[in-house]
Design a protein around this nucleic acid. Sequence first.
DNA 1: TTGTTTCATCGCATATTTGCGATATAAAAT
DNA 2: ATTTTATATCGCAAATATGCGATGAAACAA
Lengths: 112, 112
Amino acid sequence: MAVNKKQEFSAEEVALSEFAKALSHPARVAILRTLAEKQMCICGEIVEVLPLAQATVSQHLKELKNAGLITGEIEGVRSCYCIHWDNLEAMAARFEQFAASLRALKPVENCC
Amino acid sequence: MAVNKKQEFSAEEVALSEFAKALSHPARVAILRTLAEKQMCICGEIVEVLPLAQATVSQHLKELKNAGLITGEIEGVRSCYCIHWDNLEAMAARFEQFAASLRALKPVENCC
DNA sequence: TTGTTTCATCGCATATTTGCGATATAAAAT
DNA sequence: ATTTTATATCGCAAATATGCGATGAAACAA
């Protein structure tokens, strides 16, 4: 019945999966890359770079903001989005730690 | 109209987002962790560990298999799932490279 | 004041995901 | 041959995600 069972998993698993979900659409990956490349806060420029309508981009920006990966401030008539570097590093660390924890358990010989 | 625009992004962005999607549910993170911890191919034991029905676990296993992160073989009446270590490392490398590519562009002073 | 610009949000349509009971399948056990 | 066991798949319901046109809101320009 599509009950949400996500909260029955460990906090770490949920946290990792939420970061992963933030990156689970190429538009959001592209937005992060664009924000980094611009070396500055940009606004509607993202819309011009992506093959998506303004409303759709705005929604992806909102999701990245909810995930904590970017910040967004209204500056007059424009909006200024930046990468939240601390949280981005926290996400990278989480992914690395997860990979490392699996790697540490890798058997010498795989059974299949 | 919910047209799928994913293929209008770069191959790298799509590849990263697909790996991310594989990890975007805590059940799938938990399955990978469990497979690593067991140090062996396990079968229905995953169902006992997770708070999900057998049919649901089977579906998550299928998605992990489609993403290339695990292998699955039928062994008599049982199924044997293992982590696909090469592809797991490929995924880890992709995430790391993405983080590194953003990090390299981090400005000395953030504008917001 | 009246437009114009920039962006967020609403409302809708469609697609995909999540979850599970029921059933199918196939090997193994009796 | 029949039953049991383990697992995949089907079919459904509900939830969530994706996409965008239309509209709203707020600053700015005329």
